[in-house]
Nucleic acid binder design. Sequence first.
DNA 1: AATAGCGTCTCATAATATGAACGCATATCA
DNA 2: TGATATGCGTTCATATTATGAGACGCTATT
Lengths: 262, 262
Amino acid sequence: MKVKTESPAGVALVAKAFQILDMFQIESPAWSQADLVRATGLNRSTVNRLVRFLASHGYLVQIGSSGQHTLGLAAIELGNRASAGFNLRKVCQPSMEALAAKINETVILSALDAANLAAVCVDQIEGRQEGLRVFESIGSRFPLHAGAAPKAILAFLPEDLQQEALDRDLKSYTDHTIVDRKAIEEALKLTRERGYAISSEETFEGTMGIAAPILGPNGTAVASLAVALPIPRAKPETCKIITDELVSIAAGVTRHINGGAA
Amino acid sequence: MKVKTESPAGVALVAKAFQILDMFQIESPAWSQADLVRATGLNRSTVNRLVRFLASHGYLVQIGSSGQHTLGLAAIELGNRASAGFNLRKVCQPSMEALAAKINETVILSALDAANLAAVCVDQIEGRQEGLRVFESIGSRFPLHAGAAPKAILAFLPEDLQQEALDRDLKSYTDHTIVDRKAIEEALKLTRERGYAISSEETFEGTMGIAAPILGPNGTAVASLAVALPIPRAKPETCKIITDELVSIAAGVTRHINGGAA
DNA sequence: AATAGCGTCTCATAATATGAACGCATATCA
DNA sequence: TGATATGCGTTCATATTATGAGACGCTATT
């Protein structure tokens, strides 16, 4: 799907708000309203409204009792959230490429979309196999009960979210998709015990998946790393190697994203 | 100066823009326009305009060729800039307090305001002296040629900025403020050689200052750490201790803010 | 072939932002 | 001390801007 990214009309004030935020640089961290007026050419009233809005939302804070402002906690938080998403891909990429090169199968990074209780494919590296290849496009999503990557996430979610996900009606993608509530809960229990999830043709005919969870600071899943391969190539020894690698890489990523970013 | 921080009227669209940014959390990092419409209750057209604006400015980026977006580089940069300012104060505070307790004189943290070529007092800890105390309020600013803290910054600025600062007419605060161009350039040269700046009554009668620069990633000054004290108490051995401490602390902060945040 | 979902575009209408002027406080200067 | 300047807050008639329902084109699904 094509999405236009040109700046549209009808957002004049928003543009000015970000123009003001952009004034706060490392070399010029503190601004009074009057300084902003001079530097931006905006009207005083406009600057006053925007600065107060930004301050009330924590994007700006006053320095002491002076009229000066600096960037605030909300800006830091926004950056942290942005880094988290970026980090996930950046942090995983080398391992994913190495793994894809080693086993020659498709490696998939999925993130939890908590609002929709779905797993979103955030990154993907194709194995360079001739003949059969598993392909899943970036941005594609599955409900949390169907497939290895979603199940690896679901199994390590807080109890209430798990129940909420299972209370929905469980869509079926193939004859092998698990839609029976008890069967899924059993599968999740097994996943937790083993530390990884397995799917056999739950989402696509003829393919299987293995996935390990990536956990956030509070110990619940935020993403999962998975390998998908055609069943004919899924020999036990291959699966063993893949499983060990995935579990090890995912644990490393978990450590990295929680330890690295304070 | 009192500055109101309540959210004012007349910023409706800006509020919606930030409402959208706030949807992007660690647990829900990816959103399509349609999802945002459902979750926020905003109109489709509004979401479309705002998402495109935010994407065109780098605050959002598309995931692959899907309609999904995540937070983008601009958000990370904003956060970094915010952290830098915060870090400066947070990072310096312990050292500043320790130093103030040890020497019992006022410690001042000044940041460069590059747009106005000024040094802004960003943090200040008063020495607990009876009798004479030097006080400089947070938010106060001086041009870069007058006083120890400003000079410590100016001396370690890029050549072109230094010239620009000196090309202005050099305001005098006391009889001791250096306003002669050659004299200042000499003082800056000395400051670079020694690694710290000294001011004797350049900004206030009866007080002297010692300041060491805090450098940014590119090796130019972004701030300075200073001690101000009444001249009667400025004995050579006291000044020696202060100078050593300041240089050491400032160097440590420089290392910290450049090494710590990648 | 038909349907549903998503992003885009348009345009008359309604709501919103604008900005000049004034008020008030503090700081600066004579 | 009074006079002047600067900074932030407030107001309100006006002009600009945002709104949103509907239509369009595209893709994926049935």
